[in-house]
Write a protein that binds this DNA or RNA. Structure first.
Lengths: 198, 198
DNA sequence: ATCATTTTAGAACCTGGTACTAAAACAGTA
DNA sequence: TACTGTTTTAGTACCAGGTTCTAAAATGAT
């Protein structure tokens, strides 16, 4: 019974857990390169730790998000995409909380409103890589603590299957438009000849 | 050339699209039972319609929701201000960490880079209330995990003590400029006759 | 009858695994 | 040193859910 030097295994388990946590899309083979052990060891480790295989992990994530989008929870959801028609339009809801406002004025910081719109614009593009290239934005009125921002995004143009897409986003609080932005999004199916972009 | 009776195929395509839309987790084999055609026909149909295989669909959903969740927490402090001459210029540093990037590409999400610039532009204005009114921004190249963004902001114009201020921000990684933005900031000493602004 | 389209069939191959068997390496102890 | 128990590695067979390719059969219009 090896009692001393049992650390390596436990350490590896910790390492494995961390690796999978911050990239659930990693395959066993990729893990062997990181952990310097055989693929069988990786698989034994996963078993001991009760970590399902890659496909099962993806399936669970997909089912989870699918259920969330499907159930359209309009009540307490923050920054959630509630409707998404890829390459066409989308809607997301974001509630302004304490942590999003200037403490003195209770007015939302601009970058949160921008972030909601930007995320939605990027999410809309049905491509492997979609990054913001540029944007022209306007904050039409302040958004206050507790208000619910409903962002609606529409794809306005699309240069072929690669290149730029123009997305327009309008954010409302109730009937009032509080933000409007025109985003240019770079899209690419995998090739990486993008010069700029986020 | 069969010109009449071409409906069945188009109808099947419509049916197929609908079936997959309201259950993206369906396998080709399951679809054969629903559509009463062979599995090869299902696969030809998917190809023609550009519908990826089950696993790819699940993967995309999983990646999508993963990035979505990760993108939410945008900290109050975006970047560390290292130099500040009120109403003149300022510099802030922001390091791109795991939580700021797309998991697959390790490229920073645009709104973090925007947030750093926006925060700095607002911080620069020596007023009780300073809110972003509009911005015209350009992402010049992708910023990657681990890179340090150095944002430099300059006040370009100032309409009296109240009104609008124009602030230009340049963000660099090393020598390279990665972002450029022109911000219009509303400023006010307390009165709140601001029509727009964040 | 003939020709194009559409559908079906089948085999080879792929990824990312599971399940199982078995050998080898390692560590501790008698 | 030899024995023992754990840990690691290797290798095979098998699986789902496909892709890719070739080829035959069915269908329908002229």
């Amino acid at each position: 019974m090896p009692l001393i030097e049992r650390l390596p295994k436990k350490q590896r388990h910790q390492h494995l857990l961390k690796l999978i946590e911050d990239n659930p899309f990693v395959t066993d083979r990729e893990l062997t390169r990181e952990l310097k052990v055989s693929i069988q060891t990786i698989r034994l480790d996963r078993m001991e730790l009760g970590i399902p295989e890659l496909r099962e992990r993806m399936k669970q994530m997909a089912e989870h998000s699918y259920d969330q989008v499907r159930s359209l929870p309009l009540d307490e959801v923050v920054g959630e995409v509630v409707d998404l028609q890829l390459d066409k339009s989308g809607i997301s809801i974001f509630e302004i909380r304490d942590e999003h406002v200037f403490s003195r004025t209770h007015i939302a910081r601009g970058h949160y409103v921008f972030a909601q719109a930007n995320s939605l614009a990027v999410a809309l593009i049905n491509d492997e890589i979609a990054l913001t290239a540029s944007a022209d934005i306007r904050f039409l009125r302040q958004v206050h603590l507790g208000e619910k921002c409903i962002a609606k995004a529409y794809v306005r143009s699309m240069n072929g299957h690669k290149g730029k897409a123009k997305v327009e986003v309008f954010t409302y609080v109730g009937e009032e438009m509080v933000f409007q932005g025109n985003f240019v999004i770079y899209r690419s199916t995998g090739e990486d000849n993008i010069e700029g972009g986020m």
